[in-house]
């Protein structure tokens, strides 16, 4: 059962946050959202999520990258699974390519928007070892 599993969504697009939240809550997850890095860090401290869903491109072009990097290099949060979601892939012109830049970013999974909830949940289950 998904009850008790806490997910935090950090994305600067309020509609995307909402759509994802509704979908995931309907499947029994407890979901909190944040719209920028600062409130994101605060939410991690206060909400203590089991898994983080993080958008790559926020106010400045590398917010999501930096947060993921910082978390993975912080002993207290190294084991917090991070799922990166993005509108941007190699096909859309930026040099970021999940498959090849993966090692550098050190995130646990990547999804391109729009996200298939079925696939996202399968990944969440896998990362939370449910």
């Amino acid at each position: 059962m998904n009850k008790g599993k806490r997910l935090l969504i950090i994305d600067d697009d309020p509609d995307f946050r909402e759509a994802l939240r509704i979908s995931l809550e309907s499947l029994g997850y407890e979901v909190s959202v944040a719209g920028d890095l600062d409130s994101g860090y605060k939410a991690i401290h206060d909400f203590l999520p089991d898994l983080l869903i993080l958008d790559v491109m926020m106010e400045r072009l590398d917010d999501g990258f930096r947060m993921c990097y910082d978390l993975k290099h912080d002993p207290s949060y190294r084991n917090l699974p991070v799922v990166i979601v993005t509108s941007v892939t190699q096909a859309t012109g930026l040099k970021f390519n999940p498959e090849t830049d993966g090692e550098y970013l050190e995130a646990d999974a990547y999804f391109q928007k729009p996200v298939s909830i079925e696939e996202l949940v399968a990944t969440i289950k896998r990362l939370l070892k449910e």
Binding site: D13, D15, F16, A19, L20, I22, S23, M57, S87, V88, T92, G93, L94, K113, P114, V115, S116, I117
Partner: peptide, 20 residues
Amino acid sequence: SLVSHELRSPIAVVIQYLDV
């Protein structure tokens, strides 16, 4: 890239909501 991101994001969100 910026334009593509600006074009893709709203469409991606609408599809996300349609799935809901």
